[in-house]
Structures are given as C-alpha cells and as structure tokens.
Amino acid sequence: MIIKKIFNNNAVLAKDASKHESVVVGCGIGFKKKVGDEIDENLVEKTFILKQKEISEKFKLLLEDVPVEYVSLSYDIIEYAKNILKVKLNDYIYITLTDHISNALKLFEEGLNCSNVLIWEIKKFYPKEFAVGLKALDFIESETDKRLPENEAGNIALHLINAQVNSSSDKVENMRDMTTKIMDILNIVKYTYNIELDDKSLSYERFITHLRFFFKRLNKEEKRESEHDDFLLKQGKAKYKKAYNCMLKIEKYLEKELNDEEKLYLTLHIQRVTKR
C-alpha cells in the first residue's frame, strides 16, 4: 500500500494495488513520510475500509479534526460491541461514535455533564447495549484517565442501537405502520383527556421515544418478562387511575397483552405527558 494522504503522524489514507482506499492507523505511520511512499506494514495497527463513498469522505474529514487516539478508541469499542451483541453495525457508527466521544471528553474537560433524558428507557429495554456502554467507559478511562459519567454509557448505547443494521422489521412499510400506530395512540391519549399535547415538551419527546422502542420490540417479537411483581403496577393504578385506564385503551387498540412492566411504563408516560 502507498500513502495517498497524510492526516497526521499516526493516520494516513492508503491506496492498494487495486486502487482501493482505506484509512490506516498506527503509531508513527505518517511520521516523516510523504504522499507516494510505501506504508510500513509493521506499523499498521488498525485499518478502516468504508465501502460507502459518502461515509468514507466524512470519515476523512473527521480525522482532520479529531485526535487519532479517539478514532482508535472508538474502533475498539465498536469491535467489542460487535462481539458482545452479535449484530452488524452500519459503518456510519465509526463517524458518529468517534465524534461523540471526542465531544464528550471535551465537555468533561470543561466540567460540563450533559444529561441523557433517555437513559431510563435504554437501561430497561436495551440492557445489553447499555452494558457495552458501561464497558466503553472503562476503555475510555484506560486510554485517557478520564472517567465519564454513567449518562455517557447511555449515549454510547444509543449510538449502538441506532447503528444496528436494519432488519426486515425496519423496512419502510413497517416504519409507516409504526408511525400510524404512534399517531393513533397519541389520539387515544388526547381524546381520553380532551387536551392537546405539548409536542415541544420533554415528556412528549420521551413518550414518543418510548413508543418507538416499544414497537421495535413488538416487531422483533421480543418477549421480556416483567422485572417487578404487580405491586408497583397496583400502586400506579391507584395513584394515576385515569392514566391507567387510558393505558388499557391502548392495550385494547394494540390487540396484544402487555406485561406488567410495560403497563406501568405506559401509565407513567401517559401521566407525565398529560400533566399540566
């Protein structure tokens, strides 16, 4: 392979004999080199072959702004995630996750801690991805000596969730069906309470996100046993009677029996989204 472009001392754009491009990372791989030089194969630590041209171009731009150690760190997290989750991830995650880690570390250094409003859903409904997110914090700490807060485990998990290669359940027609059902559920809530929902509110955003996650699980026919006995649900029913009855209407509309945990979460979301 020969060097086509040098990003920095540790990252170069390479071209092989077939003129295929790849980004090659390694300590000192671009040091005192120039375009057209042969790459020292012994220095190669990681190779990025991004097949889609748009992703490849954005990745090259990212390398000009982000420290190469963050690129390498992101690569290790992604490879770990693939092994643990046993799923295919879209190549775009090499850009989104690297960019996120870079920004997260920058904010951390400035003493800023951004909350993750979805961490509740992520922990409950994507425990494997969240566990990978927690492990990613270990990777980051090992590389940078900075321990990011748990919220960042949720953010990393969200990147992994979004990057999972679409299955048949995520085809356009099913996405349309999901959108229709979400609108129907919102209408059930609106007509039950005879109010207009505030679509700019945080509670509305969380409710929509919860419903999207919920339908993805239904489409994948994921069966999750409730982690609680019915005690909490009974409490929710007693405290938020109208929200509970609204949830029952939604369950009837879905024509699917929900477990106690789902019933509880839907009830709580309905209570929050309708609270003035």
Rank of each mutant, 00 (worst) to 15 (best):
Lys4Tyr: 12
Lys4Trp: 01
Phe7Gly: 05
Asn10Gln: 06
Ala14Pro: 01
Ala14Trp: 01
Asp16Cys: 05
Asp16Trp: 03
Ser22Asp: 01
Gly26His: 07
Gly28Asn: 08
Ile29Cys: 07
Phe31Tyr: 15
Lys34Leu: 04
Lys34Glu: 13
Lys34Val: 11
Gly36Ile: 05
Asp37Arg: 04
Asp37Tyr: 08
Asp37Val: 10
Ile39Asp: 07
Asp40His: 03
Asn42Tyr: 09
Val44Asn: 03
Glu45Ser: 13
Lys46Trp: 03
Ile49Thr: 12
Leu50Ala: 04
Lys51Trp: 00
Gln52Val: 05
Lys53Ile: 10
Ile55His: 12
Ile55Gln: 03
Ser56Asp: 03
Leu62Arg: 01
Leu62Gly: 07
Leu63Gly: 15
Glu69His: 13
Tyr70Glu: 11
Asp76Cys: 03
Asp76Phe: 00
Ile77Gly: 05
Ile77Gln: 06
Asn83Glu: 14
Asp91Gln: 10
Ile93Ser: 04
Leu97Pro: 09
Leu97Glu: 06
Ser102Gln: 04
Leu105Thr: 00
Lys106Val: 00
Leu107Tyr: 06
Phe108Leu: 09
Phe108Arg: 06
Leu112Gln: 10
Leu112Ser: 05
Leu112Glu: 10
Cys114Pro: 13
Cys114Thr: 10
Asn116Glu: 12
Ile119Arg: 02
Trp120Ala: 11
Ile122Ser: 04
Lys123Val: 05
Leu134Gly: 05
Lys135Pro: 02
Phe139Leu: 03
Ser142Arg: 11
Asp145Gln: 14
Ala153Arg: 02
Gly154Met: 07
Gly154Gln: 11
Ala157Val: 04
Ile161Glu: 02
Asn162Gly: 12
Asn162Lys: 14
Ala163Asp: 01
Gln164Val: 14
Asn166Ser: 12
Ser167Phe: 09
Ser168Pro: 00
Val172Tyr: 15
Asn174Arg: 13
Met175Glu: 15
Arg176Trp: 13
Met178Leu: 12
Thr179His: 12
Thr179Ile: 12
Ile182Ser: 05
Asp184Lys: 14
Ile185Leu: 10
Asn187Val: 01
Asn187Ala: 00
Ile188Asp: 07
Ile188Gln: 10
Val189Ala: 05
Lys190Asn: 10
Thr192Gly: 00
Tyr193Arg: 08
Tyr193Asp: 06
Asn194Ala: 12
Ile195Tyr: 02
Asp198Cys: 09
Lys200Cys: 07
Leu202Glu: 12
Arg206Trp: 01
Arg206Glu: 12
Phe207Ser: 08
Phe207His: 02
Ile208Thr: 03
Thr209Glu: 09
His210Ala: 07
His210Asn: 05
His210Arg: 08
Phe213Arg: 06
Phe214Trp: 05
Phe215Lys: 08
Phe215Asn: 06
Glu222Trp: 07
Lys223Ile: 15
Arg224Gln: 11
Glu225Lys: 15
Ser226Glu: 06
Asp229Gln: 03
Asp229His: 09
Phe231Gln: 11
Leu232Gly: 00
Lys234Glu: 15
Ala238Ile: 03
Ala238Thr: 07
Lys239His: 11
Tyr240Asn: 13
Tyr240Gly: 04
Tyr240Ala: 08
Asn245Ala: 06
Met247Glu: 13
Leu248Arg: 15
Asp260Tyr: 10
Glu261Asp: 14
Glu261Asn: 11
Glu261Ala: 12
Leu264Val: 08
Tyr265Thr: 09
Gln271Leu: 07
Thr274Trp: 11
Thr274Pro: 07
